[in-house]
């Protein structure tokens, strides 16, 4: 079972007058089969937190541990843009991030491509696919290495509303089926409420302002009363933070 432990995490950029605090004393535990969304206004440090979790940036102070059953956890990533190699076919893009090219690996890649409804597009080049399909390949790639934790950075923000909605549903199924931990950064509160069982609200200055559990059953329809109430609650939190900031 995957586990993320963040203790007294602090991150600053620049020195002297230019110093900016991106994250301030963040303490956080995430365990097991959770879908955790990190939301907040721009400049609240949510991207910085993800960069630290994925190892792209190092914390100024504090510790981050990502483990799975005592081992260092294997992470998978989905980025804002699909980030596929344009000169490789869809299948080769999945194989690119694998450790080997054995039959079992190929079979696994094929299975995840099917899971994102692209079973017949393996021989296509990314340039031949629509934006939504490319992002699906990105998701299949992240799942195909069977990671312990999946990090996603606003993966649907570039897509049109209908495509994004379809992909959210697929993502939920995959999360449910594979029992992975997902850490999902978004600025879309509705999206967070639809997908997550836990929402972390960050405020400007990088403080973890609220930690909201959402125990509604899946699938969640945005038109559903309870879902709408949960969304309103998070949005209200946002407004309060905005008032505090101004």
């Amino acid at each position: 079972m995957a586990e993320i432990r963040i203790k007294n995490l602090h991150k600053e950029f620049g020195v002297g007058e230019d110093k900016v605090v991106a994250l301030e004393d963040v303490n956080l535990d995430i365990t097991g089969h959770s879908f955790v969304s990190i939301v907040g206004p721009s400049g609240c440090g949510k991207s910085t937190l993800l960069n630290i979790l994925t190892g792209i940036e190092t914390p100024t102070s504090g510790t981050v541990e990502i483990t799975s059953d005592g081992h260092v956890a294997a992470p998978g990533y989905v980025f804002q843009a699909a980030r596929l190699l344009p000169w490789r076919t869809v299948t080769d893009n999945l194989l690119f991030v694998q450790d080997d090219r054995s039959d079992a690996t190929r079979e696994r890649c094929r299975r995840y491509l099917e899971m994102v409804q692209l079973g017949d597009k393996g021989d296509k080049f990314p340039g031949e696919l629509s934006g939504g399909m490319q992002q699906r390949v990105g998701i299949a790639r992240a799942f195909s290495i069977e990671p312990d934790v999946l990090f996603m950075d606003e993966p649907f923000s570039h897509l049109d509303a209908i495509t994004a909605r379809a992909l959210r549903r697929e993502l939920h199924h995959m999360w449910d089926e594979t029992k992975k931990m997902v850490v999902f950064v978004t600025h879309d509160v509705g999206e967070a409420v639809e997908l997550s069982n836990r929402i972390l609200v960050f405020a400007k200055g990088g403080r973890l302002e609220d930690d909201i559990q959402i125990d509604l059953p899946f699938p969640r329809d945005p038109a559903d009363d309870e879902v709408a109430v949960a969304k309103a609650h998070v949005l209200r939190k946002f407004e309060e933070l905005d008032l505090l900031a101004s």
Binding site: I56, P75, Y77, F79, A81, R83, L85, F96, V97
Partner: peptide
């Protein structure tokens, strides 16, 4: 750079 970063994060 974005592809190289992607590959790095996937430990390629």
């Amino acid at each position: 750079k974005e592809l190289l970063d992607m590959a790095k994060s996937f430990r390629v």
